[in-house]
């Protein structure tokens, strides 16, 4: 099983620095709508105004430390997802962003050490928790996610997970 977990994602890297906050990902003034395209239209606007025009479906965003710090707005991972970003890699994430991304089915990988430049072609193996830089041939491994998150991501997000199971399930070894 595992609809999402088995798939490999390939895409071009867009590399940014440390502490990319949620206001940088989607300014608060654009968050108050249910029109998801609005989020994508303003994604990373104050950080890199051209990103929204450059990004291609399937591209992979790469951040440094503490990616997604700040607000609890789920509009941040949604903005990236709707803009076409297929996965986010960072040294580590702010807690709420990390949960939100998994909950909306946007794969996030915590990779403590990597060498990736903007434009590099990446292959993300979600099942193995690994990132391969196809441009340089180097491979990096990601920290294992809690099982409950893997299962949520497997279902494509928390909405599908709860639709299927109706409640949270916890593996014995986690409790």
């Amino acid at each position: 099983m595992g609809r999402k977990q088995n798939i490999k994602i390939t895409g071009k890297a867009h590399v940014y620095g440390d502490h990319i906050d949620t206001d940088a990902i989607i300014p608060g003034k654009y968050t108050k709508t249910l029109d998801l395209q609005t989020f994508a239209d303003h994604v990373l606007e104050d950080l890199d105004p051209e990103f929204k025009d450059r990004v291609q479906p399937g591209d992979i965003l790469v951040g440094g430390e503490n990616f997604g710090c700040g607000s609890s707005r789920e509009q941040a991972p949604l903005a990236l997802k709707v803009a076409g970003v297929s996965a986010v890699i960072a040294k580590y994430f702010a807690r709420i962003f990390f949960r939100n991304a998994v909950n909306i089915g946007l794969p996030v990988l915590e990779v403590s050490d990597f060498e990736i430049a903007t434009g590099d072609e990446l292959e993300v193996d979600l099942k193995a928790g690994a990132v391969e830089n196809l441009t340089t041939g180097r491979r990096f491994s990601a920290t294992k996610m809690p099982q409950v998150m893997i299962e949520i991501l497997d279902e494509g997000g928390l909405v599908n997970y709860l639709k299927k199971y109706g409640d949270y399930r916890l593996q014995k070894d986690e409790g």
Binding site: R73, I96, N100, N103, L158, L162, D167, Y168
Partner: peptide, 20 residues
């Protein structure tokens, strides 16, 4: 603890949350 919208919707539905 702060969460995003879908986590909150899950609390509405189940009355529960998973936490580390």
């Amino acid at each position: 603890a702060g969460v995003g919208s879908t986590d909150l919707a899950a609390v509405w539905l189940t009355g529960k949350i998973w936490l580390k």
